[in-house]
Amino acid sequence: MAQLTRLILLLGLSWVAQVALATPCVQDDLNQTVCAKRTQRVLVLAPHLTEIVDFVGGLGRVVAVDGSSNFPESVKTLPKLGNPWMLGAETILAQKPDLVLVWQSGISMDVVAQLRKAGLPVFVSEPKSIEQVASTMQRVATLFGTGAANQATINEWAKQFETLRTEHAGRTKVPVFYQVWNQPLMTLGGQHVVSEVIELCGGQNVFADLPSLAAQVSVEGVLKRNPAVLLNSGSLTDNQQLVNQWAAWPQLRAVQNGRMHTVPDDILVRNGPRLLQAAKLVCAHIDKARSALRP
Rank of each mutant, 00 (worst) to 15 (best):
E199H: 14
G189C: 04
G272Q: 10
E90P: 08
N226S: 15
A141Y: 00
L115T: 07
A158H: 04
V194M: 10
Q179A: 14
C201E: 06
T187K: 09
G145L: 05
P127A: 09
R6G: 09
Q3T: 12
Q27I: 00
R225W: 04
Q104I: 12
R171H: 05
P250V: 06
P121Q: 05
A215H: 07
Q132F: 01
A279E: 00
R38N: 14
Q104F: 03
V197S: 02
A289H: 03
L236G: 11
A158Y: 04
C35F: 01
I107S: 02
L78E: 03
L11K: 09
Q151K: 11
E199N: 14
R290T: 04
L115C: 09
G12S: 13
A169R: 15
W246T: 06
T172I: 14
P295M: 10
Q179W: 02
V124M: 10
L236A: 15
M109W: 01
I154G: 03
T39Y: 00
M1R: 11
N70W: 11
V263E: 11
Q32H: 13
D29K: 02
W15F: 06
N226T: 08
V255F: 11
V112K: 00
A152T: 10
F207S: 14
S68K: 09
L252R: 07
F144K: 05
I8K: 06
N155L: 15
A36Q: 10
P121C: 06
A208E: 08
S68I: 10
G82E: 09
Q3K: 13
C201W: 06
V26R: 12
Q40R: 09
V255Y: 10
E126A: 13
Q240F: 01
P264T: 01
Q204P: 00
V44F: 04
S195V: 06
L21W: 11
K128E: 09
V65E: 04
K80I: 13
L49Q: 12
W15N: 07
Q183V: 12
E90S: 14
V217P: 01
A2F: 05
V16S: 11
W103F: 08
L281P: 03
Q183P: 07
P250M: 10
L13M: 13
V124E: 09
L10E: 15
V56A: 06
K159G: 08
P184W: 03
R225Y: 02
I267P: 10
P211I: 15
K96W: 09
R270F: 05
V53A: 05
E199R: 15
F177Q: 13
L49F: 01
S108L: 12
Q277L: 11
V112E: 03
A113T: 14
S14T: 12
P121N: 04
M86C: 06
K159W: 05
Q240I: 02
W246D: 09
E90F: 08
D287L: 13
G88Y: 08
S14R: 15
Q3A: 14
G57R: 12
R290S: 05
L293E: 01
Q241R: 12
K128V: 11
A20C: 08
Q204V: 14
T50Q: 08
S14W: 15
S14N: 15
I92A: 01
S68E: 10
N239E: 15
